[in-house]
């Protein structure tokens, strides 16, 4: 079994465990390369079906390419799409350029996710985060509990031995399941290349720039690159010295921003 086969198999194992243990489950689909790869793996796990809803947390500030991709592929792959939007905060004027970004991510992403989970009573969420993205994400468990307030108790995480994961959820707790935790950015692109997984055009270079990581248009900056195909991205990543999330404003605003965001329930 080669490296990508081994990664794929481990992810499918985790996805099937999550579905078996927690029937009220959803996949958080941000429409980026990772969560789209996760969606691909979900479809493989269930022989082409997606037996639970996909949730898109919509801040209203996403790139138009993201919305187009979402509508095209949710129809093509035929799954139930739930769009979570904090309308109240948006109406009251919360925006990336007003106040600080911690507050904006908190309202338009974390609070919107809280509302969506409460409304649909999801017990578990599949998320496409990876350990190599950020030092804080490297500390995650595969099955990671969040309390009612969404807090991540990173100082007292339950043990996880071999492939035995947390399989009970109590009360208003929900479990974040991370099937891609062991993948790297390069693994994702090699897999996208091998499997021919569709991704949003923003990842491909235009006029010497491309996006390494995508989210809200207002808070993402492209990096210098001439990689305009998946093959070229794979080659670029083998040698690059720039970190993946270097274009993401919310990671940088202040020290421990990611830890603070995640402790409060951010993805």
């Amino acid at each position: 079994m080669d490296h990508l086969d081994a990664l794929e198999s481990q992810s499918i194992y985790i996805i099937r465990e999550a579905y078996k243990q927690f029937k009220d489950i959803c996949i958080l689909w941000s429409i980026g390369k990772d969560s789209t790869t996760l969606m691909w793996l979900v479809r493989k796990s269930f022989f082409g079906k997606v037996p639970f809803p996909a949730v898109h947390i919509d801040t209203g500030y996403k790139f138009k390419e993201i919305y187009e991709f979402r509508d095209e592929w949710s129809e093509e792959w035929d799954f139930k799409l739930v769009i979570g939007k904090n309308e109240e905060a948006i109406e009251s004027g919360m925006a990336p350029d007003k106040g600080d970004k911690l507050a904006c991510c908190g309202q338009l992403k974390t609070a919107a996710l809280k509302q969506t989970i409460a409304e649909h009573d999801f017990k578990a969420l599949l998320l496409g985060i990876r350990r190599d993205e950020h030092g804080i994400r490297a500390k995650e468990r595969v099955f990671s509990p969040r309390n009612k307030q969404f807090q991540w108790d990173y100082k007292d995480q339950p043990p996880e031995l071999w492939d035995q994961f947390k399989n009970r959820q109590k009360g208003e707790q929900h479990i974040r399941v991370h099937p891609l935790l062991h993948w790297t950015e390069l693994d994702i692109w090699k897999y996208v290349q091998r499997e021919n997984i569709p991704v949003v055009d923003l990842y491909f270079a235009k006029d010497g720039k491309r996006y390494r990581s995508i989210g809200c248009e207002t808070c993402c900056n492209p990096v210098d690159s001439d990689a305009d195909t998946v093959d070229k991205i794979v080659e670029e990543l083998k040698t690059t010295d720039i970190s993946e999330r270097s274009g993401r404003a919310q990671d940088k605003e202040r020290a421990y921003m990611m830890q603070k965001l995640r402790a409060l329930g951010y993805m």
Partner: peptide, 10 residues
């Protein structure tokens, strides 16, 4: 090999 668990693995 095995684990023993209550609410969490112990």
């Amino acid at each position: 090999r095995f684990v023993l668990s209550r609410e969490d693995i112990c």
